[in-house]
Structures are given as structure tokens and as C-alpha cells.
């Protein structure tokens, strides 16, 4: 092979190689950008700041439905209220109170209506010592038994706070006991957790271990 033919071959090879590269670069045949991940939006329940329930004080304040607090629209004020027990020793509740669940206290032993409600005036609350409170003053009734928790609550350490930490700039609002706790079953109810962190890669199939957790 003479030198001219050799040079010709090298040059043709180079040209083909370069054009191939140019084409590959232009079409980005490798290192294609990954499809962007699009995560589903978080349901708005997980960002709203509402309490899990509403206390009577809150219902009055927000002008909600207070019909449930007027006991004497059904009960007779003149007649003494008596509690009838079934054979298991459970109170027999009238139809409007059927959904009531009593789970208060260790072993649910604080299960007597008139431990907290005033038997003489059903629209009032009453502690054992005889002091009575309005329905909207429930916090003090709770505090009559739960002293340390009430002390923490007064200092803003137990329970929810909203507003301003700097009281010179604005007010901070505590929540009532019954804004979070059902007085008849006070332990905080189990709730649905928010979505977990999304993996950077598609979720693995069942039984497969994830390659990478976020």
C-alpha cells in the first residue's frame, strides 16, 4: 500500500468517526436526561391547622351548632335524672347519647356521668367538691383532677398554641382541653399519617427491597 492510499484511509476513517460523533452528540444518543419525577400533591388536610375536634367554648365562639348543649329541650327540668344500669352494670343511654363511648381514666373507671356533669342542672359541670362550671369553662373542670397537666397548659407547655411567641407583637391562643381530647374518651385518637417521603426512583414491587431510600 503506498503512502497516499494509507493517508486516504486514515482521513476517511477520521471523517466518518467525527461525523458519527457529531450525529450522536446532536441526537444525545447517550446520557439522556431522566424523565422528571412528578410527585402527587399532598392532600390539604395535612397542612390545615384546625384542631381535631371543637370544644363547647369554641363552638359558642365561632357561632356553630349549639343545639346539643340545651339539655332541657329533651330532659324535664323538674324531674330528677336517674341512670338505669343493664345487667352488666353499663348505663342504658337514651337514643341521642347512643354514640357516647366512655373511656376515661385508667381501666376506664371514670365512667359515672355525674362525676363531671351536674345532676341538678344538666347544662352545667360540677366537680366532686361541689364547685360548678359552665360548659364553656371545661378547662377548669379538667384541671380539678389533672393538676400537673393543667399547670403545664396554663404556661403554654401542654397543648396547642397559635399566633405569636412574642406577646409584645400579638396574642397567642391556647386551645381548650376538649379541642383535642374527647372528655368521655380523652386519649388522643389515632390519626392517619401524611404521605411518606417519595423515593427518587420508582417504588419497588412487593417483596423487592428498595435500592435507594430518600
Amino acid at each position: 500500500m503506498n503512502t497516499n492510499a494509507k493517508e486516504s484511509l486514515v482521513m476517511t476513517g477520521l471523517a466518518v468517526g467525527f461525523f458519527g460523533l457529531a450525529g450522536a452528540f446532536a441526537l444525545t444518543l447517550w446520557a439522556k436526561p431522566l424523565e422528571p419525577v412528578v410527585n402527587p400533591p399532598t392532600p390539604p388536610d395535612f397542612t390545615n391547622t384546625a384542631t381535631v375536634r371543637q370544644s363547647p367554648a369554641e363552638i359558642y365562639r365561632t357561632e356553630g351548632d349549639t343545639s346539643g348543649f340545651s339539655c332541657y329541650s329533651c330532659h324535664d327540668a323538674k324531674k330528677k335524672l336517674e341512670i338505669h344500669l343493664d345487667t352488666n352494670g353499663e348505663a342504658i343511654l337514651a337514643e341521642p347519647h347512643k354514640d357516647l363511648v366512655m373511656r376515661h381514666g385508667r381501666k376506664n373507671r371514670n365512667d359515672y356521668c355525674f362525676n363531671c356533669h351536674d345532676a341538678k342542672n344538666l347544662e352545667q359541670l360540677r366537680v366532686n367538691e361541689g364547685q360548678t362550671f359552665k360548659l364553656t369553662e371545661g378547662n377548669r373542670l379538667c384541671g380539678s383532677c389533672h393538676g400537673p397537666t393543667y399547670r403545664d397548659w396554663e404556661r403554654g407547655v401542654h397543648g396547642r398554641m397559635q399566633g405569636f411567641w412574642d406577646l409584645s407583637r400579638g396574642a397567642s391562643a391556647k386551645s381548650d382541653c376538649t379541642s383535642c381530647h374527647d372528655p368521655h374518651a380523652p386519649s388522643f385518637p389515632p390519626i392517619k399519617p401524611g404521605p411518606r417521603p417519595h423515593a427518587l426512583h420508582p417504588e419497588p414491587a412487593a417483596g423487592e427491597t428498595p435500592k435507594h431510600t430518600p
Partner: peptide
């Protein structure tokens, strides 16, 4: 002077 967002949303305080 306000509380952080994570504090205000916490349902358990």
C-alpha cells in the same frame, strides 16, 4: 414574632 409553621400545625401540641 409568630410561631413557626410546624408548631402551629402540630395536632398534639
Amino acid at each position: 414574632g409568630k410561631y413557626p409553621a410546624c408548631l402551629e400545625v402540630c395536632p398534639t401540641g
